[in-house]
Nucleic acid binder design. Structure first.
Lengths: 248, 248
DNA sequence: AAGTGGTCTAGACCACCAT
DNA sequence: TGGTGGTCTAGACCACTTA
């Protein structure tokens, strides 16, 4: 049924790309929720009227993007933001000896604001639209290492309150996922070196003027839609940021 | 011929992994040199006594790791260190507005030294083995932005002299490739913020005490074999380090 | 034992590039 | 026109998980 999917579609892509789009659409519409299993490959093949090989090709790519997770003998699952995935996929700070630790988050501030032109551009909003601004202090092994400032579109997180944010039982990205159905699947970061100002220095218990690593992150959901801006200041005296490229 | 390749092999992996290993071995032994074409997939299938599908699977992975490059209608080629690949794959500094520029390199020092325990461990050498230490100043659009210190195993680059290094006609990684047959395919980096010392400050034309981004890179060839250590100090006043993860 | 993903095959047809 | 990689199919068998 090579062309069954394509009738009425104006733009032509390989079948497996169409299938990938359809599966992603199912994820967006929460037909399959994070943590749950997709139908088996045989069933997906029947559903989309393509061969299993084509399904596998589509799922292969979603697995490579860490949107889906295969488990032999069990099934294929929608990736969740469990702490392990966070640690290996979205948290790139390690102790200088290479040991990874889970951060503990303390919320310092929760404010409502309006998007300036820069934030609007980066979040696909109009200048002046409402945003939420959250500041956190992250500790590793009890030591304050990282200051975060998160900016979210108010419209995307309509009922988010400081209380909800503080009393979440899991990571921030797991909160986006479970409560708002937004699954963060990708992040782009820009890094620079800077100097600690008085306020940051005090919170991180370092002298003013000490060097800090500044990380500007844009976190995205499916189709590279930006969801969260995050500016982090990291004390890299005993910790480092790791980055690995060229590995398949 | 499912088991043809496996006879006499003590460890069992999927066929396409074996094929991938054999192709990689051909690359290591320079049977196919960077820039040249591999045999067609049909021929590779005949040579290794597997189906084309299995060849494609193996080549797919090598393409994903950017070790090979497919060009429809032309063939499959061994990746080279042309400036474009360098810029998009191994050089992660961009101007703050996102523009990528090719750096110009000025060699400041070329020395011979012995590996201390840290260098020996990271380069898979024994402490005390001979190493080459090269310092460079990199300019972007004429401005000194980056200080590099490169450490190489003398044994791997036996006849490398300052003259050869300075008078290379292409990038450093292209030199490793064309003269020593070493193809850098992967890099792992650790970043931290630091403060400019007097010497660095002078070379980068910034005040002492200004913040600098320190990048510690291990560059690897096939099979994750470490080849080069590189410590970079970057003036991130007008430039940034970019990192993107979660994209397939 | 039944169901899932994982591997491998063989062959068809298409899109692209060189000549 | 002939050769290359790109897509798609259909089916076989294996490895693993669960019940």
């Amino acid at each position: 049924m090579n062309s069954a999917l394509r009738t009425g579609v104006e733009t032509f892509a390989p079948l497996y790309i169409e299938v990938k789009r359809l599966i992603t659409q199912g994820l967006i519409e929460a037909e399959w929720e994070p943590g749950s299993a997709l139908p088996s490959e045989t069933r997906l093949a029947q559903r989309y009227h393509v061969s299993i090989g084509t399904i596998r090709r589509a799922v292969d790519e979603l697995v490579a993007e860490q949107i889906l997770v295969r488990q032999q003998g069990r099934g294929t699952f929608v990736a969740t933001h469990d702490p392990k995935r966070l640690l290996f996929h979205f948290f790139h700070i390690v102790r200088s000896d290479g040991v990874k630790q889970l951060p503990e988050t303390e919320t310092l501030a929760f404010e409502r604001d309006r998007a300036d032109t820069s934030i609007a551009r980066r979040l696909n909003l109009l200048p002046g639209e409402r945003v939420i601004r959250i500041r956190n202090l992250l500790r590793l092994a009890g030591e304050p290492i990282l200051l975060d400032e998160i900016v979210l579109s108010q419209a995307r997180f309509p009922d988010l309150t400081e209380k909800i944010f503080r009393e979440r039982d899991a990571t921030v990205y797991a909160l986006y996922q479970t409560r708002y159905g937004i699954n963060i699947v990708r992040a782009a970061e820009r890094l620079r070196a800077t100097i600690a100002e008085r306020a940051s220095a005090r919170l991180l218990k370092i002298p003013p003027g000490a060097p800090l690593l500044e990380i500007n992150r844009t976190a995205m959901t499916y189709h590279n839609t930006p969801v969260e801006l995050r500016k982090s200041l990291v004390n890299t005296a005993e910790h480092e940021y790791w980055s690995d490229f060229g590995k398949g």
